[in-house]
């Protein structure tokens, strides 16, 4: 108790005195260890509780009949309480008893409702002075509020890296196998004076080349690839404002892309297999395949 400032000591002594019903000087003395601490026994309270119902139970009868006799109740109530206090908590007796009387009086005075409400109004710790009050209720929640529900996650090693490694090995094996059985084409040396017929682009451009045979090159060769293929396609996420990702909720987008795939696939297959000299229609099973890039050089070694 060395370093506590006097004004704080004074304040807590006052609080203690108020709580225990003793004088401030007494409380201060107790706090400084100069006097034995005041002990409030729990027993009297229990007794009081036990006894209170008794008068209360007795009271209702007269109370119910006439308001007048009810006024008498305080006296017995005071009588019952006071001796108990004297026995058990000498120091606080008078004060508590007085309180007791004050409190019981209004209850007893209450006419009929007193009977009905009696169980609710039983004060289970009538002698305990409440020395604290409720300022606010703080709900229990974390200081840091997570923005979202936690996501179900697994360790990258090994759950992602091992499958990746397997996929990578499988791809390598597939590529080596393909390269071992399928010889890349090498035709005669480049000759600007000899134009092959047909002259075909790589397969991924053959859909475009096919479109070129229907439309003006300005449209099929330039406008469609750059405006539709590049600019609109890049802007697509900004055009599609539907936030849903589940296929059942974006049927139009799914349909749109599927039609695109089907169209591009069809054009490419036509360009690869069904176009011959002069870009005329051919049937690969009749006229042969007019596509040097992929197919003619299969050899097994």
């Amino acid at each position: 108790m060395v370093d506590i400032p006097e004004h704080l000591l004074q304040r807590s002594a006052e609080a203690r005195a108020k709580a225990l019903g003793i004088s401030v000087e007494q409380a201060m003395a107790e706090m400084k260890g100069q006097s034995d601490p005041t002990i409030i026994s729990k027993e009297p309270e229990v007794k009081v509780i036990d006894e209170t119902p008794a008068p209360a139970a007795e009271t209702p009868a007269p109370a119910a009949e006439t308001p007048a006799p009810a006024a008498e109740t305080p006296a017995p109530a005071a009588e019952t309480v006071t001796p108990v206090k004297e026995e058990h908590a000498a120091e606080t007796t008078e004060k508590v008893a007085a309180v007791k009387i004050e409190e019981k009086a209004p209850v007893a005075k209450t006419p009929p409702p007193a009977k009905a409400d009696a169980p609710d109004e039983v004060d289970f710790a009538p002698d305990v002075k409440v020395t604290q009050r409720l300022l606010t209720v703080v709900k229990a929640k974390p200081i840091q509020k997570p923005a979202k529900e936690p996501i179900d996650k697994v360790n990258t090693w090994p759950h992602l890296m091992l499958p990746e490694f397997v996929a990578l090995m499988a791809m390598t094996a597939f590529l080596i196998f393909l390269s071992a059985i399928l010889q890349a084409p090498l035709l005669e040396e480049a000759n600007p004076n000899v134009t092959p017929n047909p002259a075909k682009a790589p397969w991924y451009f053959l859909g475009l080349q096919e479109m070129l045979s229907y439309w003006d090159p300005q449209i099929a060769g330039v406008m469609i690839p750059t405006v539709v293929g590049l600019i609109l396609w890049m802007a697509f996420p900004y055009i599609d404002r539907n936030p849903e990702t589940h296929p059942s909720k974006r049927k139009f987008a799914i349909m749109f892309y599927t039609f695109f795939l089907a169209g591009a696939g069809t054009l490419t297959i036509i360009g690869v297999l069904f176009r011959g000299p002069g870009w005329n229609w051919v049937y690969p099973w009749i006229d042969g395949i007019w596509f040097d890039d992929l197919l003619d050089w299969i050899h097994f070694e």
Binding site: L186, L187, E188, A190, N191, T195, A201, Q209, D292
Partner: peptide, 15 residues
Amino acid sequence: WDQLAIWAVTVGGNM
């Protein structure tokens, strides 16, 4: 630098 190469690129470049 074979016939396939030069003519495929010619088709593309002409576009």
